[in-house]
């Protein structure tokens, strides 16, 4: 649940150092590097889409989902500063994201778009 991790009373006390720490964001070089990584992953994804042997292989779907998750996490951590900001924001984002992801997965199971194979 979203509020659980910060129910520790000390976590939300005013902390001058954390307040200041917010402004210690990385400089533009990091941002450009992150942009280059994002571009590279996108090229990788599109490349995979056009290689029939990759599309046909069993790693195609897991690979694309992983790459997408990496891009997602990179933007959230660096461009949205979640890596550097107050941990309250991390809780406010990851809590709902977790519930959203679980809902998505449950719905896909319920509608038979995902099938769990037990045993062999």
């Amino acid at each position: 649940m979203a509020e659980n991790p910060h129910s520790d009373p000390s976590a939300t006390e005013p902390k001058a150092d954390e307040h200041i720490a917010q402004h210690h964001h990385p400089d533009w070089k990091t941002y450009v590097k992150v942009g280059a990584v994002l571009t590279a992953i996108t090229i990788w994804e599109v490349w995979a889409y056009y290689i029939p042997s990759v599309v046909a292989s069993r790693i195609f779907v897991p690979m694309l989902l992983t790459l997408s998750a990496v891009k997602f996490a990179t933007v959230v951590m660096f461009y949205m500063h979640l890596k550097y900001d107050h941990r309250l924001f991390r809780v406010l984002f990851t809590g709902p994201l977790l519930i959203a992801a679980l809902t998505l997965i449950s719905l896909l199971f319920l509608f038979g778009q995902l099938v769990a194979r037990f045993g062999r």
Partner: peptide, 11 residues
């Protein structure tokens, strides 16, 4: 989250 008086911890 943000407007609790001084000392009004979550618990």
């Amino acid at each position: 989250i943000n407007l609790r008086a001084p000392g009004m911890t979550l618990m």
